[in-house]
Design a protein around this nucleic acid. Structure first.
Length: 490
DNA sequence: CGTATTTGACCGGCGC
DNA sequence: GCGCCGGTCAAATACG
């Protein structure tokens, strides 16, 4: 293959001007560049250092290029020195040519890796900034929440105090996890330590912290013997228990409802199941009335006798939407990935239960089972439906809007799309159910809520690049905690 | 062979 | 009482 060396050199300089383009150049025109680099005379000031000269003369002097030059320079010179010192054959022009090509190829690959490393580092910095920003927002809200709780306690509003306890516990847990996440990303702790700390702190949250606000929660718990905080239950410490009802039957009924409360998550996914970090075993499948797509039943197998179950079904109207409904509380520790999802659904359940508590406490004169409540504080995040057999809160992660406070507070460069993240996770799974067909009438549990106009969208955040489920649910959980606190304040 | 999935049968709640 | 429907069980089957 014959090329004009000048034109090739020019083209090469253009490619080298951006680290990101080096990869495409490597993939697409590797052979051509090899020939050009060795034989071209333009921009070459020595006979054995073609790569070095070309890179240096590309006209860019930013940090990446400087670093790039240093590595290439070092690599090429080392190879040549070795060759010159060890070679005894005086007619080894071809060998030197071959070595130059190999060295240059290795150098370019190294440069590409360095460029990729730099890009990842920048991405990591952006993520850390986002977490710090969320932490700052959280601290502000946390302080406000503590003040409100103190005010409520001083007024003797026990029910409101319990609501605050619930929200506070969720906030404290989020605080612990967010700090761990920041340290993980900054390299202060490794993944194993992160996992261990998440689990340990999760379980010991109510017992070992020196945070005064947590002590407040513990004091509340101690003075309410009927409230339960069993170790190992991630949800229990956030689900309020009642001891102040004058009507015992009503309290029992409410407790029953709490046990049956469900959290439904709507995501876009081609996979048969989203990846939520838990281990599930399928124990049944049924054709639900009005939906051509079957409903699959799973139970959690991470712990012996874990009562948590979930239903997975495709939306009748839009097959790309996967509806996952969670029910029950885990009776075992969860890994961080699962805890993230569990905390998200927990926060959503807290929103749901805060509505039921108000109802039971007479603050809202409505029957939970008879009403369908859309929380005024978070109309675009979640929908509570009581028209279903069980109180259900639906988290819609499939639509976009601009009403989410978190979204407004973030920069476009580092925004997340939970739908895309979940979708990506789902796509990464090996199985594809192929549940497609023509739409029919929607009468399933989730679709019932949609029919009554209850489904609302969670503020979707733009996503650039791949993110972990942990981070995604961290943001989602914060959003729900934020909404939950607003619900309390309103 | 052990484990996971499939699928028809069964059960209980609910409305008529 | 009967039928419908959601949910669960368990034997059969598939899979690694």
């Amino acid at each position: 293959m014959v090329h004009n060396s000048d034109s090739i050199c020019k083209s090469t300089d253009e490619h080298l001007s951006s680290p990101g383009i080096i990869m495409s150049w490597l993939n697409g025109k590797r052979v051509v560049v090899d020939e050009m680099d060795f034989f071209a005379e333009k921009n070459r000031k020595s006979t054995h250092d073609g790569v070095k000269q070309e890179v240096i003369t590309d006209g860019h002097d930013d940090g990446d290029q400087i670093m790039l030059q240093r590595h290439i320079d070092l690599h090429v010179n080392t190879g040549l020195d070795l060759k010159m010192n060890t070679s005894t054959n005086k007619s080894t022009t071809d060998d030197r040519t071959s070595h130059n090509i190999e060295d240059k190829t290795a150098s370019i690959e190294l440069a590409a890796l360095l460029a990729e490393l730099h890009q990842m580092r920048e991405e990591n910095e952006g993520l850390k900034d986002k977490i710090r920003e969320v932490n700052n927002n959280y601290n502000t809200l946390h302080m406000h929440l503590v003040r409100l709780m103190q005010r409520q306690n001083s007024h003797g509003n026990k029910a409101a105090g319990m609501i605050l306890d619930t929200g506070l516990a969720a906030f404290v847990e989020k605080d612990v996890q967010s700090k761990n996440l920041v340290e993980l990303m900054e390299g202060k702790i490794d993944q194993q330590n992160y996992t261990t700390r998440e689990n340990v702190q999760f379980l010991d949250l109510a017992n070992s912290s020196s945070d005064s606000s947590i002590r407040g929660v513990r004091a509340k718990r101690d003075e309410s013997p009927n409230r339960e905080f069993p170790a190992g239950s991630w949800l229990t410490n956030k689900v309020p228990k009642f001891s102040h009802f004058g009507d015992v039957d009503q309290a029992a009924e409410t407790m029953s409802m709490i046990k049956k409360a469900r959290v439904s998550v709507r995501t876009r996914s081609e996979s048969s199941m989203i990846s939520d970090g838990c281990q599930w075993r399928k124990y049944g499948q049924k054709m639900a009335k009005g939906n051509p797509c079957p409903r699959a039943y799973y139970r959690c197998t991470m712990g012996t006798g874990c009562p948590v179950r979930k239903q997975v079904q495709r939306c009748a109207e839009e097959r790309s939407i996967l509806i996952t409904t969670y029910e029950g509380q885990h009776n075992h520790p969860l890994p961080p990935t699962a805890a993230a999802m569990a905390s998200t659904t927990s926060a959503a359940a807290s929103m749901l239960l805060s509505g039921s508590m108000r109802s039971a406490d007479g603050l809202m004169n409505t029957n939970l089972l008879a009403r369908s409540t859309i929380l005024a504080c978070s109309p675009n995040i979640a929908t509570i439906s009581a028209s279903a057999p069980f109180p259900t809160i639906t988290l819609d992660l499939t639509q976009t809007n601009n009403n989410n406070p978190l979204q407004r507070s973030t920069s476009p460069q580092a925004q997340f799309s939970l739908s895309q993240i979940l979708g990506q996770q789902a796509l990464n799974q090996s199985k594809f159910s192929g549940l497609h067909g023509k739409p029919q009438e929607a009468t399933s549990l989730e679709d019932t809520a949609q029919e009554s106009g209850e489904t609302t969208a969670f503020g979707e955040l733009e996503h650039k690049g791949r993110r972990s489920n942990d981070t995604a649910f961290y943001y989602l959980r914060f959003s729900f905690c934020f909404s939950f606190m607003l619900c309390i304040v309103v």
